[in-house]
Design a protein around this nucleic acid. Structure first.
Length: 283
DNA sequence: CTTCAGACCTGGGCGC
DNA sequence: TGCGCCCAGGTCTGAA
């Protein structure tokens, strides 16, 4: 799925057509995605003005003037595509609805936002604005990796004594929220830390490097519009570009890009997911 | 409490 | 072309 940079790219694409806009019509083309949609979702959205479009971890949050917040998760393959009258934007048009177009939202200004999700691991929900701490999907999330709450000191505290590999720990959204398989691999390579290393056995200095690497790779990916392997699209339908800047992800057998390193990228499977790394420079 | 396999879905790529 | 198999950006759930 979209990890943090892809979700942020989608949020930024939606801001010009959705923030401040009034929802004129909502079409639900099925009962739900990963879970059933909340009761009367279409009616609770219709006629509402979107006050603010936020992001928390991999969730997009739209605060409405009804004091409810619409939560959107893109799952593995979710896309939000803009068409119709969308000033200043490239309009992504479809002659006929795709079989995976599940939710269609029209604004009074004439923009259309289509939630397309082939695998249907995505989700939508409504909850009272400000009640993030009570929402089962949001309450246990760790700090934002690009925010002030995320630091080497925080990591040090949370990783102390843990024997799980650092790869698995960084995928745990309670430790830090927003990383997924790609960016964990990339950040660990940049920090020259092996994905196999026990989380509790990383020095403070190297944790500082890890925090910097995570911030850098996420920032660069956001600037590139995210990474498009197969499913991710910007709201314009355009692909992201960061996949061209991967140093290890999907590059098994390629020479390690670390200057002075003569290693070769390897793929190992950890808890069912591929970890790409350089055994020579990542320790 | 931690850790893990299994589950939810579709589609693309590959070998035969 | 077709078929079977493997893999994929997530993460919840229940069992051990």
């Amino acid at each position: 799925m979209p990890e943090l940079p892809e979700v942020e790219t989608v949020r930024r694409g939606l801001v010009p057509v959705l923030e401040g806009a009034v929802i004129a019509r909502v079409e639900l083309r099925r009962e739900g995605l990963r879970w059933p949609f909340p009761p009367d979702m279409a009616a609770r959205l219709t006629g509402r003005r979107v006050r603010l479009l936020r992001r928390r971890a991999k969730y997009i949050l739209a605060d409405l003037d009804s004091e409810e917040t619409l939560l959107i998760h893109l799952g593995m393959s979710g896309r939000m595509l803009i068409s119709g009258r969308a000033p200043g934007l490239f309009a992504h048009e479809r002659a006929t609805p795709d079989r995976h177009d599940h939710v269609v939202i029209d604004t009074e200004a004439g923009a259309r936002i289509t939630f397309n999700d082939a695998r249907r691991f995505g989700a939508m929900d409504l909850f009272p604005t400000g009640q993030e701490a009570a929402h089962r999907l949001l309450r246990d999330l760790g700090p934002e990796p690009l925010g002030n709450g995320f630091s080497a000191a925080w990591l040090r505290e949370r990783l102390a004594g843990r024997r799980m590999p650092i790869k698995a720990v960084l995928l745990d959204q309670r430790i830090v929220a927003g990383l997924g398989n790609i960016y964990v691999c990339e950040a660990l390579h940049r920090a020259q830390i092996s994905p196999l290393r026990a989380a509790g056995r990383i020095s403070a200095v190297r944790l500082e490097r890890l925090v910097s690497a995570i911030r850098e790779v996420l920032s660069e990916a956001i600037a590139a519009g995210g990474s498009s392997l197969r499913d991710h699209r910007q709201t314009s339908g355009e692909m992201g570009y960061f996949q061209h800047d991967f140093r290890v992800y999907g590059r098994e057998g390629a020479p390690c890009p670390t200057p002075g390193c003569s290693g070769m990228i390897r793929r190992v499977v950890q808890s069912g997911r591929s970890s790409f790394h350089c055994p020579a420079c990542q320790r």
